[in-house]
Computed example of a mutant assay.
Amino acid sequence: MNDKFNFFESVYEVVKLIPKGRVSSYGAIANYLGAKGSARMVGWAMNAAHQYADVPAHRVVNRQGLLTGKHHFATPTAMQEMLEQEGIRIKDEQIEDFDKLFWNPAVELL
């Protein structure tokens, strides 16, 4: 197995722990995995996550709560629709109350 595959698998395991109705960021997940500065790699993992039904990739957004990964879903509105089904409000492609809904694995998984 290569390192990229192992990293992606580690990302998926963390993303599976994000509770319904909460969101995390690419950078927070990278930091938790000891790969500070690798937010982009987490994004690549999320882009590839759609082949796994049990990885809630829609719960991972950028550090400002923007739905930057929306283009990697089946439709441009699918990510927002999935988040709204979990009770998360979106305005102008950004999560409202992001700071209250933010799930930081470094804090939550102590």
Results as ranks from 00 to 15, higher is better:
Lys16Pro: 08
Leu67Lys: 04
Val42Gly: 07
Pro19Ala: 08
Val60Tyr: 03
Thr75Ser: 14
Lys36Leu: 01
Glu108Trp: 03
Gly87Trp: 07
Leu109Asp: 08
Lys16Phe: 08
Glu96Trp: 06
His58Ile: 02
Tyr12Asp: 09
Lys100Asp: 09
Ala57Asn: 03
Asn31Gly: 03
Val107His: 10
Tyr12Glu: 08
Gln85Leu: 13
Val42Thr: 07
Asn6Leu: 15
Ala28Ser: 11
Met41Ile: 04
Lys70Met: 14
Leu109Glu: 07
Phe73Thr: 08
Glu81Phe: 01
Asn104Val: 13
Phe7Gln: 14
Ala39His: 10
Gly69Asp: 09
Val14Ser: 07
Lys4Ile: 13
Glu108Cys: 03
Val61Ile: 06
Ala74Lys: 15
Pro19Gln: 06
Ser25Tyr: 02
Val15Leu: 09
Ala74Ile: 11
Ser10Met: 14
Val61Thr: 05
Met79Ser: 14
Lys16His: 11
Phe7His: 14
Gln94Ser: 14
Glu84Phe: 00
Val23Leu: 09
Ile95Tyr: 01
Pro105Asn: 06
Gly34Met: 08
Gly21Ile: 10
Lys100Ser: 11
Gln94Asn: 13
His50Ala: 00
Lys91Thr: 03
Ala49Phe: 05
Gln64Tyr: 05
Asn31His: 12
Asp3Pro: 04
Ile90Thr: 12
Ala57His: 08
Ala106Val: 12
Leu33Met: 05
Arg40Leu: 12
Asn2His: 10
Arg59Ser: 03
Val23Ala: 04
Arg40Lys: 12
Pro56Arg: 13
Gly87Glu: 02
Val14Leu: 04
Tyr32Ile: 06
Ile18Trp: 01
Ile95Met: 06
